[in-house]
């Protein structure tokens, strides 16, 4: 397995605050990797270290097989990067900015002409001739994605690439990222779970600077789905929830929006045997009982607590 990104024991502290705490990540070449976390989890800090904008307090970072402290222009020439709030020269037009970035990569004129035309189209800015200073946040975000692609990068690092986009813009960017699968390694941070579910192969969930889950999306959802039981009864759901919450194998019981009980369990076999007994003891009817199908959102909420940051 060839790795585009590898971090080991990566830690970053600002005074007493640990922005990243012993982060181990492996991102395969050619994959689309979603880096999920609530605001303030440390996503941007990690991207700053991947791009060499900040230095680790301890631990190591490798990009395209090279230690990040030894990353030079030849490695940067193979990377595309979009920061969370991209800063542009407001007096330039979109085309001028893309040409400027292309010249930084020393792209020859003919290739640059082709790419600028194609990327302006992708960003929906082909006919926009005004200076960037007058752009909306969405237009700037689309231009930011376009500039990150100007060098046809081998590794694309994107910090919240869809956060400022409308639904159509989001769809276009996600489709574009999806089209890069297998050719370019895409690593993008986001707190929009639907985006990750839509395009990513693999995901890592970050909370308070620590990676709390890491793996293929299906593996994560199935791993956590095995621990959840959905239960529908004809009546007396409240009393049954109290009975279940007293059981040693039940870690939480919640009433879902449809009235079904969502039970998180530590021992599925024990739960399967005990739940029908508890239902019978309540003299209520059992409509449905099954292991719940968890989405990434459920995994995310269960892992990071779902609190507002």
């Amino acid at each position: 397995m060839s790795l585009a990104i590898r971090t080991s024991g990566l830690t970053k502290t600002y005074g007493e605050h640990r922005a990243l705490d012993n982060v181990d990540l492996e991102v395969e070449e050619g994959s689309i990797f979603g880096f999920l976390g609530p605001n303030g989890a440390g996503k941007t800090t990690l991207l700053r270290m991947l791009t060499g904008l900040a230095r680790p307090t301890s631990g190591g970072v490798q990009i395209l097989g090279r230690d990040v402290t030894a990353v030079d222009d030849s490695i940067r020439a193979r990377i595309g990067f979009l920061p969370d709030v991209p800063g542009f020269y407001d007096w330039m037009t979109a085309e001028e900015f893309l040409r400027f970035v292309g010249r930084l990569f020393a792209i020859d004129r003919r290739t640059l002409d082709e790419r600028v035309g194609m990327l302006l189209g992708l960003a929906g800015l082909t006919d926009v001739t005004t200076a960037i200073g007058g752009y909306s946040r969405g237009m700037k975000q689309r231009l930011g994605v376009a500039q990150a692609l100007i060098n046809a990068p081998q590794l694309l690092l994107l910090d919240e690439p869809t956060s400022a986009l409308d639904p159509m813009g989001r769809r276009d960017v996600l489709e574009m990222l999806s089209s890069l699968r297998g050719r370019t390694t895409v690593f993008f941070s986001t707190h929009i779970l639907a985006d990750v579910e839509r395009v990513c192969d693999t995901v890592a969930i970050l909370d308070h600077g620590r990676v709390v889950a890491h793996g293929p999306i299906q593996e994560l959802t199935s791993r956590y789905a095995e621990r959840k039981v959905i239960l529908e009864v004809t009546d007396a759901a409240g009393g049954l929830a109290e009975d279940i919450s007293r059981e040693p194998w039940a870690t939480s019981v919640a009433v879902g929006p449809t009235g079904a009980l969502e039970i998180t369990v530590t021992d599925m076999d024990a739960a399967r045997r005990a739940i029908p007994v508890l239902v019978a003891n309540r003299h209520t009817g059992l409509c449905r009982m099954d292991a719940g199908e968890l989405g990434l959102e459920d995994v995310f909420v269960s892992l990071v607590g779902g609190g507002t940051r």
């Binding site: 904008l53 940067r76 920061p83 709030v85 020269y89 990569f105 020393a106």
Partner: peptide, 17 residues
């Protein structure tokens, strides 16, 4: 001013020392 506006970040993540 380039650090504050974020333009330095965009430029210095390209092959510019």
């Amino acid at each position: 001013s380039e650090r504050r506006s974020g333009t330095a970040v965009l430029v210095l993540t390209k092959p510019v020392s």
